[in-house]
Design a protein around this nucleic acid. Structure first.
Lengths: 255, 255
DNA sequence: TGTGCAATGTAACATACGTTATTGAAAACG
DNA sequence: CGTTTTCAATAACGTATGTTACATTGCACA
């Protein structure tokens, strides 16, 4: 399936060899599972067994308090890897659930060990993925702590937009957008009502067109400035790719 | 200096060999730098060169918006490692500044390459550190998105308390606490005034004693329940220690 | 041993956002 | 193909937290 999104994304950063492609391809086709929308893939408290690669569909990571308050802490889009090396932890501290129908490939510990030993470029690529995810999480901290409701939502939409584009999943100025206002509320720490108000405001200013399950962004720059969005934290920089060199040395720390 | 805190922390999780100790010891003494309080170690936009190991003192990671709004996104305590492998990124997406006087050891890319090739247990230990830091960042997202002011501050104090204790830096029920109310405000996304109000409230309920630069926690359980604190995300579990090295299943035990 | 500046403490007032409730329009479903 | 459920929209009202302002304490350093 859409292993393409993963490869496309990783190759933004590190050039992968034909052998690397074969390895990734095998990883992505060996143990595939399918899930319905709005279903849990992994639950807090479970022992993490595999790492999950999202082949298609959207999912999220969330945490919940005893009294039911719930926070979405990240979104997974096609091509995303859930948590490289989680299996070294004893138990999950959060849950992962699907938004749409989702296909995932399970990557075993053995896969990672083998990759670590034999495919340094993939290791580097996975480290990049890990570091970017950490940066995204920091940016969410920033959003929740400092940005207003309008800025938060604009910022989140920009982030999703750029990530989808990197994965090759935007068409012109629009994209699939399966999140409900409730999802946005749980992700931004706002109430559903206020998310609604804020979306109206974004619409009124012509920053977004959001109807059904489709989002259009007529002018990304304007949306970015509404969200005080600085894309540096996504580390998408093509120029940075003198890091091809990275792969040729006996490479960066392993997994 | 207090390389002890790092080793103590890592050995909670992975047993390190005598050789591993030597390696870490060398890393921690070769290139040491000292900084005054309230000074930047690294600035957003710079090219990351080394990884930093905090030998002594407190520091924080923060991000800033153009208009000056500022968010502390994490704290570094003695024994913490800043960002394993950051040097694969082209530029920093945040800054790191000191709170107290700080000593750090700079760990080079070459160090990581060598460790990756020859010291799998250290690699595992560093992965653990990386995964725990990611979990902490998620928990902050949760706090900022869902917890009330009182819960947020109580939660943060519990986290710092447990991390200090793991590093061997608590004395009985009290510890050094160099954060100002302004720091707490920037970390919790609250105003200084409201942090002050909230600290008064925590004091009034006997949950904390905070005076000068010393914090006492007379009853950790009560503070934890005020903050809806569940320590699972810190992954301090000793039982999980049947992990010696990635891929190498073997004995439990440890010092 | 003052003197100055940063940190803490309080009060009065302002507001962005939450809560509850109701309605209509889409989807999902049997 | 009607029925049920979910999702979106909007309004009225409530509150946790922000803002501004100023007084007090503590501590670095001359």
């Amino acid at each position: 399936m859409s292993l393409a999104s993963l490869v496309r994304k990783l190759e933004q950063f590190v050039r992968l060899s034909p052998v690397d492609h074969v390895i990734l391809n095998r990883a992505a086709t060996e143990r595939v599972r399918h899930f319905a929308p709005r279903v849990d893939i992994v639950r807090e408290g479970e022992k993490p067994k595999d790492v999950h690669l999202i082949l298609s569909g959207w999912a999220y990571r969330y945490k919940q308090l005893e009294d039911g308050r719930r926070q979405v802490v990240s979104f997974f889009l096609p091509g995303d890897i859930c948590d490289v090396n989680v299996f070294i932890l004893r138990e999950m501290d959060h849950s992962i659930g699907t938004i749409t129908a989702v296909s995932i490939a399970d990557l075993s510990r053995e896969f990672f060990d083998k990759v670590a030993a034999e495919h340094p470029r993939i290791v580097t690529a996975f480290w990049w993925e890990t570091l970017v995810n950490a940066a995204i999480q920091r940016e969410w901290t920033m959003s929740l702590g400092q940005r207003t409701a309008l800025e938060r939502i604009a910022h989140l939409l920009c982030e999703i937009w750029l990530r989808l584009r990197l994965a090759g999943l935007t068409q012109g100025d629009s994209c699939d957008f399966p999140l409900t206002q409730g999802d946005l509320a749980d992700a931004t720490g706002l109430s559903k009502v206020h998310v609604n108000r804020t979306l109206q405001e974004l619409r009124a200013e012509g920053l977004i067109v959001l109807k059904g399950k489709t989002l259009s962004v007529p002018n990304l720059d304007r949306l970015m400035s509404a969200g005080l969005f600085n894309p540096n934290y996504l580390h998408m920089d093509h120029e940075g790719r003198q890091l091809d060199a990275v792969g040729t040395r006996s490479d960066a720390a392993a997994g």
